[in-house]
């Protein structure tokens, strides 16, 4: 919002060049600096697997894995990611070459409409990596022990990914199965 009295009028958008790696490929874009990382992917790279459920960091549908950590791509500007290594749902696996987590979602029916699903899967992969890395959560009882991929840990860490279709019970089963696999 402009301050009261400040002149508002036609100003050309400020553009900036940004380069990052998306799913292993270097991508370079000239973007209006107001472009979110989510819209850079969806509207400019036509990688629309990452979904826009709210554009406000309230739903998790836009989750991507950036430099190894999951983030809400709607809450970050693309130009803040110069040099970042970005993995989207399209980078995890493809229809005929599913990532184990994608495959587990299919077998456990961990989705219905599918709109939250890419976000759930990206979060799911990152959550198991977080647990593996020993990062504690709100429900970790013993901060000195290594956290485990219990149902409670999974539910807590996945709670930023809303699913209005209510596939939660199946998502937890899919993730538990993957977590239980030998590395």
């Amino acid at each position: 919002m402009a301050d009261a009295g400040a002149p508002v009028g036609p100003e050309s958008p400020v553009m900036a060049n940004v380069a990052f790696t998306v799913n292993g490929k270097r991508r370079e874009l000239d973007l209006d600096i107001r472009t979110s990382l989510l819209d850079a992917a969806r509207e400019h790279l036509h990688l629309s697997g990452s979904k826009k459920g709210c554009d406000h960091g309230q739903c998790g549908a836009c989750t991507m894995i950036v430099d190894g950590r999951r983030i809400n791509a709607c809450l970050t500007l693309a130009v803040m990611h110069q040099g970042s290594d970005i993995v989207t749902i399209e980078g995890l696996g493809q229809p005929d070459n599913l990532h184990p987590m994608q495959d587990a979602f299919v077998r456990h029916d961990g989705y219905q409409c599918g709109y939250c699903t890419p976000g759930q899967i990206c979060s799911g992969v990152a959550v198991l990596a977080e647990i593996e890395a020993g990062i504690p959560s709100h429900v970790t009882a013993d901060l000195n022990a290594a956290p485990e991929a219990t149902a409670d840990e999974i539910r807590e860490r996945m709670s930023g990914n809303l699913c209005r279709c209510g596939a939660y019970s199946n998502i937890v089963e899919a993730m538990t199965e993957i977590a239980g696999r030998p590395a």
């Binding site: 994608q102 599918g114 699903t117």
Partner: peptide, 12 residues
């Protein structure tokens, strides 16, 4: 399994 599952889970 759902026949559309591989598309929904891969963002395609």
């Amino acid at each position: 399994n759902r026949i559309d599952g591989k598309f929904k889970t891969t963002g395609t």
